[in-house]
């Protein structure tokens, strides 16, 4: 590949994407964890097809949440350790956009594979096609918000050695609204008393809010902790 001149932010996106896809990156690990988690559930609660069909969307959502949580703590810490985080401050792009691009690249490399894997794992949980569609649609809308909120946690714990657990404690409570509306929309897709669109549109609103606010919070945390 010949080096080409691109915009700073696109260069950053490509770098993050490549690092995540190389050996030891977070891309494939999340999917494997997702698969393992979903496989474990029938062993724990029994292989009753009706029960699995009923709680399937919730299981897929919790598994996706856990799988994304696994990879967050390296989001800024890897850059802090190898010194790139300091250098990212010296570019012409504002830190908020840098955070946003890093989160988007992280989502593309580790969130998107989860969404692609979800329908296949849903089959193991006795999900009907319409329910699978609901799960995929809600994950597609909801996981970017998970990544952006995870970005705040990752930025706040960037100087904490082995801060993964602390980050999980910070991030998990903030993901509750996403989980509530994600799961209720996914369940509403296959019937029920609630129409699909009402929780789904609230989920969309949460994600848009996360896009607007989270980069500022994470960038502020990175600036303050740079000391």
């Amino acid at each position: 590949m010949t080096p080409a001149s691109t915009s700073p932010l696109w260069a950053l996106f490509l770098r993050e994407w490549r690092v995540a896809r190389r050996i030891g990156g977070s891309g494939a690990m999340g999917v494997v964890f997702f698969l393992t988690f979903v496989t474990l559930v029938p062993f724990a609660i029994g292989a009753d097809p009706n029960l699995l069909a009923r709680i399937g969307p919730a299981i897929l959502w919790i598994a996706a949440l856990m799988a994304s949580l696994l990879s967050f703590d390296r989001l800024f810490q890897a850059d802090a350790e190898d010194g790139s985080l300091d250098l990212l401050h010296l570019g012409s792009s504002p830190l908020e956009l840098v955070v946003l691009i890093k989160c988007l690249a992280h989502w593309a490399a580790s969130g998107l594979p989860l969404i692609l894997a979800a329908p296949f794992l849903g089959l193991m949980l006795q999900q009907e096609p319409i329910a699978l569609g609901g799960v995929v649609a809600t994950l597609l809308v909801g996981t970017p918000a998970l990544t952006l909120i995870g970005g705040i946690g990752a930025a706040a714990t960037v100087t904490v050695r082995r801060g993964g657990l602390l980050m999980a404690l910070l991030v998990l409570p903030l993901t509750i609204p996403i989980l509530i509306f994600g799961v209720s929309a996914a369940e509403a897709a296959s019937g029920g008393s609630v129409p699909f669109l009402s929780p789904f549109l609230i989920l969309c609103a949460i994600t848009l809010t996360a896009f607007a606010l989270c980069p500022f919070a994470a960038a502020a945390a990175l600036r303050y902790l740079g000391e």
Binding site: P3, A4, A11, L14, R22, G25, S93
Partner: peptide, 16 residues
């Protein structure tokens, strides 16, 4: 995980 060229190319584009 990246090659020397990829690393330098990134910084060349990012810092430019």
């Amino acid at each position: 995980a990246l090659s020397v060229e990829e690393n330098l190319n990134f910084w060349a584009n990012y810092l430019a």
